[in-house]
């Protein structure tokens, strides 16, 4: 891994981490586990569409690991991981189906997948299938927050295209 690439990925991870920590300080929108803006995903989406899958995945994993550590909530690691990986898989899949101008669509589906993954992990961990009742609410919030992060990421990709060259 070249120095430049390492530095660039590290900066992006730091950015994602900062956004993540700042978001933690914001008051919750809804008192439902898993509902948040997921602003850090802006970085994931941006990285994927400019740098490619390996770099984006590395940044995502580092952010999740460090984020859980910094937030002092290692329990959340499992939920973040399952949500994060599932949404990443969806992003990868969607990338093949979309044009550059439709990037925000990938983000919407990724956000939904993220919440789905978190619910699945929560159901497994707490052995409480009835947590499924949160799925519709989480889908709505996924669409709304995914739209927001997606549009932001799309804007960022356009702007950072040249800066984040491989």
């Amino acid at each position: 891994m070249g120095i430049k690439r390492l530095a660039r990925d590290a900066v992006l991870t730091a950015a994602a981490l900062t956004i993540f920590i700042v978001e933690l300080q914001l008051p919750e929108l809804v008192p439902i586990p898993g509902v948040k803006l997921g602003l850090a995903n802006i970085v994931t989406v941006t990285a994927l569409f400019t740098l490619g899958a390996p770099d984006a995945l590395a940044i995502l994993l580092c952010r999740i690991l460090l984020g859980s550590l910094f937030a002092g909530n290692l329990m959340a690691l499992l939920y973040s991981l399952s949500g994060g990986l599932l949404s990443f898989a969806v992003l990868l899949l969607m990338r093949k189906l979309l044009t550059k101008k439709q990037l925000w669509v990938a983000s919407v589906f990724a956000a939904m997948a993220h919440n789905l993954g978190q619910i699945a992990a929560a159901i497994l961990v707490t052995s409480t299938p009835s947590l499924l009742v949160y799925l519709p609410v989480l889908t709505v919030s996924g669409i709304v927050t995914g739209l927001f992060t997606g549009l932001t990421a799309q804007y960022a990709v356009g702007r950072l295209k040249n800066v984040l060259k491989k």
Binding site: L81, S82, A120, A121
Partner: peptide
Amino acid sequence: MKRTLFLILT
């Protein structure tokens, strides 16, 4: 990963 988790739980 999820599959492993599921297996362990089962």
